[in-house]
Amino acid sequence: MRLYVAGNAPNSLRAIANAKAICEEYLTSRYALEVVDLLKHPRRAVDDGIIVTPTLLRLRPLPIQRVVGNLSDTNQVLLTLAAK
């Protein structure tokens, strides 16, 4: 999974915390999470077509799934991660 954030903006900090909590709780250790800070690497937004932050991508299994927001809605996040 890849999480795009923007520095220490409130939504971004919350998203990082939420993502880590969800992964730990529901995926235990069956995951890899990369956090990309767009303030440090703005060009990377082009690669995945990122418009808003935070955005979480499920890279595998394909197809890629994406969810936007600070991931406070755990159910939505889980639904997206489980989508086929």
Partner: peptide, 15 residues
């Protein structure tokens, strides 16, 4: 697009 909480445009503006 699935929305799960608030978001902002900071990343896009940085780009």
């Amino acid at each position: 697009v699935v929305k799960a909480g608030e978001f902002d445009l900071i990343g896009m503006l940085a780009l």
